[in-house]
Simulated assay, not measured.
Amino acid sequence: MLQNHLKKYQIILASKSPRRSQLLKELGIDFSIENKNIAEIYPPGLDNHEVALYLSQLKADPFKQEIQNTNKLVITSDTIVCLGQEILGKPTDRDLAIAMLQKLSDQVHEVITGVTLTSAHKTKSFTVATKVYFKALQQDEIVSYIDQYKPFDKAGGYGIQEWIGMIGIEKIEGSYFNVMGLPVQRLYTELYHF
């Protein structure tokens, strides 16, 4: 069992996301939450997978010094939504959230999560990608969703587990939980071998 394997570690989830916290709990892992504020800025010229990886590693950097000579294992991650080469971040206001969903309507986009596991002795990073197929969304569906759910903390301006995911997503290729923000199956495997 993974829990026995992880007994030697004090697990820290470095995320403000309630969804990541919920998913990690459902894996049966004991952990605490600790956040560091970092500017999520990445250098130009990276491809989409490299951006997700870079940001997850960037979030791990502030922990590296303080976990030396400890048994802490820090999990950092970043999820990006990509329409072609365009990366859609978290919408800063209602108009931007509406514009994002208009862009995603009747399109296939990719959700990529970069994850970094960091301990005093080891670091492991990986990405997981999922393709998401949206139907053509009606304007009133988009506006109603944005006004009711206010998805301003979500990359791409939507949550797959919310109403818009139920009525708007025709299919996905890959991990559902990755679209929620944490690829739990791959994370379980990587933690088991860490």
Rank of each mutant, 00 (worst) to 15 (best):
D30G: 06
I33M: 14
N35L: 13
N35C: 14
K36G: 08
A39D: 15
E40G: 04
I41L: 12
P43M: 14
P43E: 14
P43Y: 14
G45C: 08
L46E: 07
L46K: 10
D47Y: 09
N48Q: 09
H49A: 07
L53R: 07
L55D: 01
S56A: 13
S56V: 04
L58V: 01
L58R: 02
K59L: 01
K59P: 03
A60T: 04
A60I: 10
P62K: 10
N69A: 12
T70A: 04
I75E: 07
S77M: 11
D78Q: 02
D78P: 00
I80C: 01
V81R: 00
V81C: 08
C82M: 06
G84N: 11
Q85C: 04
E86T: 02
L88S: 02
L88N: 00
G89S: 11
K90Q: 05
K90L: 04
K90Y: 03
P91T: 07
T92P: 00
D93C: 04
R94I: 05
D95L: 04
D95C: 03
L96Y: 05
L96M: 14
I98V: 13
I98K: 05
A99D: 13
M100V: 00
L101M: 11
Q102G: 08
K103G: 07
S105A: 09
H109G: 00
H109K: 08
E110M: 09
E110G: 00
I112L: 05
I112W: 07
G114M: 06
V115C: 03
T116P: 03
L117P: 01
S119C: 07
A120T: 14
T123K: 12
F126N: 06
T127Y: 05
T127I: 06
A129K: 10
Y133Q: 11
Y133M: 07
K135H: 11
A136D: 12
Q138W: 13
Q139N: 15
D140K: 15
E141Y: 11
E141R: 12
Y145E: 14
Y145A: 07
Q148F: 15
Q148A: 15
Y149I: 09
K150A: 12
K150E: 15
F152V: 02
D153N: 09
A155R: 01
A155E: 06
G157D: 05
G159D: 11
Q161S: 06
E162W: 10
G165E: 04
I167Q: 09
